[in-house]
Design a protein around this nucleic acid. Structure first.
Length: 423
RNA sequence: AGAGAGGUGUCCGAGUGGUUGAAGGAGCACGCCUGGAAAGCGUGUAUACCCGUGAGGGUAUCGAGGGUUCGAAUCCCUUCCUCUCUGCCA
């Protein structure tokens, strides 16, 4: 969530930023935050002063008791009754204001970076660059949902039998392709200085709050209600939460973690014509990269991550483009997001396979993820993450783009992982 | 899952109702001492919020949340976690 101090000090910028996101009543809402915060301070002052008085009387009583002046102690006790009741009232008032403020802050998205264009939808995103050759396929080209049947490598019907729609079963070379991609992505990440982690894929509520899935977005996650745990929608949640309530030293930066996990998304109400086959699933695999960065270095880190993700796509020989998301299309917690899309040649459309974001202090504030600077001050760190990469659409593009009459050619870089070069 | 023990500051560890944000030790930082180092000595060493230009002051925090009390690290309740034994299990 946003820092109240930031809102106070950069009010105009914050309003303009939120307007870029089409956040309704930006100015009114931010004013309300400041008013509530002022009320909070007043309430705290009142409460603290009274509590201080009560504390000092209690100490007095303690001293009187020690020195055997029982009667005077009793007199002092009588005085405290009233104060106690008042403190309780003030305490409740304070808590209510604080709660209200917190809820309001939870409802406000991150302020976009200056360079983020205003815009309403994906149509307003900016194409930063396009790379790679779009293959020219014969007229008998097949979309991946046909190819997987033809070669019997991914079975949606079996998944329906076991679980339901959106839970495919990978078989034979399909399963091996999955495993090869995961290993390839992890190896590349390690080569690029990321340290590999294997986090839990069920997380508690605190973790959900830490990265911003909670409150309000619990509908997106599968929940194990008996234990109040959530199946992760992305490894961002457990990996970033590794650093919840942590105070780092400046020399700890940058922290670079990478991990593979399955991801689970309910995707309630988002089914339609464009989500056939592997395009949208309830369960899929993804390798995620996470960086914890010094605030001065986080945009460098973001560029770094973007270039790294692109290097994977180049090695997989997939045509891709990089988008800078507009305010209206960015995630709630992000300040700047690049989306990487690959071209899937049979569907003849671009598929998002990675989303790389800088959250600045928005997540760190919730996470209480801080660092001690040289001058011994504690400041919030910056968090970033990105997919590197999400498997299903990569698989879709590999299958579609490389189909030939003799079978589907595998990218060279995967062959050592696969043990075969063609499906 | 059952029985028992326990969760205190960066770490170890004392503390069972009264100026305890918390003894003592270790570590770390700075200073003194030294030719240099070690030892020794001294000082300092949490987080959040609030008040104050500042020095400084206030409030809260001893796993978390409630309660009893004028006063709680200390008593009570709930909850989470760790350890030991038993059970179960990949």
């Amino acid at each position: 969530m946003l820092l109240v101090n930031t809102i106070r000090e950069k009010f105009e910028d914050a309003v303009i930023g939120l307007q870029k996101r089409n956040f309704p009543q930006a100015e009114e809402t931010l004013k309300q935050v400041l008013e509530l915060d002022n009320k909070r301070k007043e309430a705290q002052n009142e409460r603290d002063n009274l509590q201080a008085e009560s504390n000092s009387i209690s100490k007095e009583i303690g001293m009187l008791m020690k020195s055997g002046k029982k009667e005077e102690a009793e007199k002092a006790k009588a005085r405290t009754g009233e104060i106690k009741a008042q403190v309780k009232t003030l305490e409740e008032a304070y808590n209510q204001i604080e709660e209200e403020l917190k809820h309001l802050l939870y409802s406000i998205p991150n302020i976009p970076h200056d360079s983020v264009p205003a815009g309403k939808s994906a149509d307003d995103n900016i194409v930063m660059l396009e790379n790679g050759n779009i293959p020219v396929l014969n007229d008998d080209k097949l979309p991946h949902w046909e190819l997987i049947k033809k070669y019997d490598i991914i079975d949606f019907d079996l998944g329906v039998k076991i679980t339901g729609a959106g839970f495919p079963v990978y078989k034979g070379k399909g399963a091996r392709l999955q495993r090869a991609l995961i290993n390839f992505f992890l190896d590349e990440a390690v080569k690029n200085g990321y340290s590999e982690v294997q986090p839990p894929i069920l997380v508690n509520e605190d973790s959900g709050y830490g990265t911003g899935q909670l409150p309000d977005k619990e509908g997106q996650m599968y929940e194990a209600t008996a234990d109040k745990l959530f199946l992760i929608p992305t490894a961002e949640v457990p990996i970033t939460n590794l650093f919840r309530d942590v105070i780092l030293q400046e020399q700890d930066f940058p922290i670079k973690n990478a991990g593979h996990t399955p991801c689970f998304r309910r995707e309630a109400g988002s089914w339609g014509a464009h989500v056939r086959g592997l395009n949208r699933l309830h369960q899929f695999d993804k390798v995620e990269i996470v960086q914890i960065s010094h605030p001065d270095k986080s945009y460098e880190a973001l560029e770094d991550m973007s270039i790294y993700v692109q290097s994977l796509l180049q090695k997989l020989e997939l045509p891709y483009r990089v988008l800078k998301l507009c305010g209206g299309d960015m995630g709630f917690t992000s300040a700047l997001t690049y989306d990487m899309e690959v071209y899937s040649a049979a569907q003849e459309r671009w598929l998002e396979v990675s989303s790389v974001s800088n959250f600045e202090t928005y997540q760190a504030n919730r996470l209480k993820l801080r660092y001690k600077s040289e001058d011994k001050k504690t400041n919030l760190a910056h968090t970033l993450n990105g997919s590197a990469l999400a498997l299903p659409r990569i698989v879709a593009a590999i299958l579609e783009n490389n189909q030939t009459a003799e079978g589907i050619k595998m990218p060279k870089v995967l062959v050592p992982y696969l043990g075969f070069d063609k499906i």
